[in-house]
C-alpha cells in the first residue's frame, strides 16, 4: 500500500528530542551532515553511528520505523555502493572482470559511501519524526529570517513548504482511493509494457490533479477569508525561545564535529 510510505511523518512524543527547539534540531542535522562529510575512517563512522544510536534511543522512535525510511532510497544506496565498489581505481586489485575491478580502496570507499548515505538519511528522518511539520517550518523561517534583508521571501517559501508537507499524507490517501476506484472498474496497473503502464496512470493522475487544484483553491480562499496577506507584520502564537537544553545540545553537536575533524587530522 502507498500508505506505508513514511515521508516526513511525525511521531508525536514528549522526549527531550521532541522538546528541543526546532532551530536547534535543524542546526544539529546540519552539524551532523557536515561531520559525516568530514569523516574519513571507520573510527569516525563508528562515532557517527554511535551518536545516531544515542539520539534514536533518547527519542524513543522505533529503529524499525527509521529503517523503513531507507526503503525508498534502497536503490540509490545499492547503486552508489556498486559504482564505488566496481569502478574505483587503486592498488591491491582483489577481483577483476572486464571493465569491473574491486580494489581495496574501492571496498573502503563503497563501505563509507553506503554508511554515509544511510546515516545521513536516518539522521534527517529522526528530525522529521520528532518535529511536527509546523514547528519545523517555523524554525526554518526563523533561522533564515536574516535573508529577508536580501529580499528573499522567506516567509512565503516556508509557508509553501509547510503546506506541501501538510498535504503529502492527504494526497497519498487520495491516490490510494482513486487507484481503488479505478481498479474496481477493471483498471490494470501491473501488467503490460512500459508504454501501457504509463497510459494506465492517466486515470489516476487526472483525478488527482483536479482534486489537488480544487484543494489549493479552497485553501487559498479559506486563508484569504482569514485575512492572510503574507509575512509582513505577522506575529507568532508560539514564539521560539532557546532553552538551556538547546545550548547544551548545540555545544555537544559542535564538540562531536570537532572530534570528527580531530580524528581526521590525526589521520585516523
Amino acid at each position: 500500500m502507498l500508505k506505508d510510505i513514511t515521508l516526513g511523518q511525525y511521531f508525536p512524543g514528549n522526549t527531550v528530542a521532541h522538546r528541543l527547539d526546532p532551530r536547534t534540531k535543524i542546526l544539529l542535522v546540519v552539524l551532523y551532515i557536515t561531520a559525516l562529510f568530514c569523516a574519513g575512517s571507520f573510527a569516525a563512522y563508528g562515532l557517527m553511528a554511535a551518536v545516531l544510536a544515542v539520539c534514536v534511543r533518547v527519542s524513543r522512535v522505533g529503529l524499525r520505523a527509521l529503517v523503513k525510511g531507507l526503503k525508498p532510497v534502497l536503490f540509490i544506496i545499492v547503486f552508489t555502493g556498486l559504482l564505488n565498489l566496481l569502478f574505483t581505481p587503486g592498488e591491491g586489485i582483489l577481483w577483476a572482470w572486464g571493465p569491473f575491478h574491486v580494489t581495496e580502496t574501492g571496498l573502503r570507499n563503497a563501505a563509507f559511501m553506503v554508511l554515509r548515505i544511510m546515516l545521513l538519511i536516518m539522521g534527517t528522518f529522526l528530525m522529521t519524526y520528532t518535529t511536527s511539520p509546523i514547528s519545523l517550518t517555523d524554525g526554518l523561517e526563523r533561522l533564515l529570517s536574516g535573508l529577508k534583508r536580501f529580499h528573499v521571501p522567506v516567509h512565503e517559501l516556508t509557508m509553501i513548504m509547510s503546506i506541501a508537507l501538510r498535504f503529502i499524507p492527504t494526497l497519498i490517501e487520495e491516490t490510494d482511493k482513486i487507484m481503488s476506484a479505478q481498479k474496481a472498474r477493471g483498471a490494470d496497473f501491473e501488467s503490460g509494457n512500459l508504454m501501457e503502464k504509463a497510459r494506465a496512470l492517466v486515470p489516476i493522475l487526472v483525478p488527482l490533479f483536479i482534486s489537488a487544484f480544487r484543494r489549493a483553491d479552497e485553501l487559498a480562499t479559506a486563508m484569504e477569508c482569514r485575512c492572510y496577506h503574507g509575512g509582513e507584520g505577522r506575529t507568532k502564537l508560539h514564539v521560539l525561545q532557546y532553552q538551556r537544553r538547546d545550548y547544551a545540545a548545540l555545544t555537544l553537536g559542535v564538540l562531536i564535529l570537532a572530534g570528527v575533524i580531530a580524528l581526521r587530522a590525526c589521520g585516523l
Partner: peptide, 28 residues
C-alpha cells in the same frame, strides 16, 4: 471478480478522468 461485483465508491465523482461522459462510462 471486479467485473462481476461492481463497486461504486463513496464520492465516486472524484474518479472521473475522461474527456467526455461517454468515454468515461466506457472505461469499465
Amino acid at each position: 471478480v471486479r467485473f462481476q461485483v461492481g463497486l461504486v465508491f463513496q464520492y465516486p465523482e472524484y474518479q472521473l478522468f475522461e474527456e467526455t461522459v461517454y468515454k468515461d462510462i466506457a472505461f469499465g
